[in-house]
């Protein structure tokens, strides 16, 4: 049995301007101990996907359809109180905005200790000892002082380390890292990624690594999938995706990434994808990428929905070219 199996998940935001289909029929599966990369542009629905798994999609968002099977149980069928016993205990999240994600008037100590007390029933003394141990794990110096301090007294990188400690505190089966490196500088980024990697190994958790950076994903994950406008366009093991991408969007994405990374002077020329992502409330009919696609065919705009075709073992593409 796989650890997590998401089937045809749909999460919509009911805004005054219309229905935003942030996650629109996403299905995937992951094994115990696996690191799965989720790559996509801003607005592709990656964050909403992560929040949907924890069922913490903020208003006016709603999970409208699908199943989320976690260790065989459908999370969407659990009551709110059953779900809250699971959050932070078996599934946890490392957020995108470390500085904004710790509650300002509460000390770091209390914010780490509370998960240990709530989920594992630790006494105050036990929780304190474990908290110090966790801070050591996430390489925080001057631990006693950090415990007494408040979130605003820490740097972004420090906050992220604290949040990583909280995420792994109860040895969860699954950690969702939601762009954990977006708001810290490059050097800290590398440290944070390798820290998450070593914590994941140490605590034996599975990891969903959400990022917009193909490069980061490829260094960390075995498999990844590409999201665009709420859908999965391609899913494959990392080497296959990088060396022989199939979907026109993936090809373009990797070209963009290479052109950004290349140290060859290009006289200001950078490869870009023409056009912009589709309007969230009025997506195009047919293939979601069709308006920007360089290999589009006539039928692409006519078909209702395109399933994921398996082109090779473990390599899925949602494109009519590979029917």
């Amino acid at each position: 049995m796989s650890l997590l199996r998401v089937e045809n998940l749909k999460t919509y935001y009911y805004t005054p301007l219309g229905v935003v289909r942030a996650v629109d029929g996403v299905s995937f599966e992951m094994e115990k101990g696996e690191i799965l990369g989720v790559v996509g542009e801003i607005g592709a629905g990656k964050t909403t996907l992560g929040r949907s798994i924890l069922r913490i999609v903020p208003e006016p968002g709603k999970i409208v359809d699908g199943r989320i099977l976690f260790e065989g149980k459908d999370l969407l069928k659990l009551s709110e109180s059953e779900m809250s016993r699971l959050r932070g205990r078996y599934i946890s999240i490392i957020p995108e905005t470390p500085i904004l994600s710790l509650n300002p008037p509460f000390t770091i100590e209390s914010q780490i200790k509370e998960v240990l007390k709530k989920h594992l029933g630790y006494s105050d003394e036990e929780a304190r000892r474990e908290t110090l141990h966790l801070l050591e794990q996430v390489v925080i110096p001057d631990r006693e002082a950090i415990l007494k301090s408040y979130p605003h007294e820490l740097s972004g990188g420090m906050c992220q380390r604290v949040l990583i400690a909280i995420a792994f505190a109860c040895r969860p089966s699954l950690v969702i890292a939601d762009e954990p490196t977006t708001s810290v500088d490059v050097i800290t980024q590398a440290q944070i990624v390798s820290l998450i990697r070593s914590m994941q190994r140490e605590y034996g958790s599975s990891l969903i690594f959400i990022t917009h950076d193909v490069g980061f994903a490829s260094k960390l994950c075995r498999r990844m999938f590409i999201m665009y406008a709420g859908r999965i366009l391609e899913m494959a093991p990392v080497e296959k995706l990088l060396t022989s991408p199939k979907h026109p969007y993936t090809k373009a994405l990797i070209k963009v990434a290479y052109s950004m990374r290349s140290t060859k002077p290009t006289k200001g020329y950078l490869y870009t994808i023409k056009g912009s992502p589709p309007s969230p409330t009025q997506p195009p009919k047919g293939c979601i990428f069709e308006p920007r696609c360089e290999e589009k065919m006539e039928e692409c705009s006519k078909i209702d929905s395109i399933p994921l075709f398996e082109v090779e073992k473990e390599h899925f593409v949602s494109c009519l070219l590979y029917r």
């Binding site: 709110e80 809250s84 932070g88 946890s92 999240i93 710790l102 509650n103 709530k118 989920h119």
Partner: peptide, 27 residues
């Protein structure tokens, strides 16, 4: 209640009651 730290408190498994009356109210 729209702040990221409230979402994070929820993700930690705190009850809605605790989130509203302690985590939210104090802010």
């Amino acid at each position: 209640m729209k702040e990221d730290y409230i979402l994070m408190d929820k993700a930690k498994g705190l009850s809605q009651f605790h989130i509203v009356f302690v985590r939210g109210l104090r802010n």
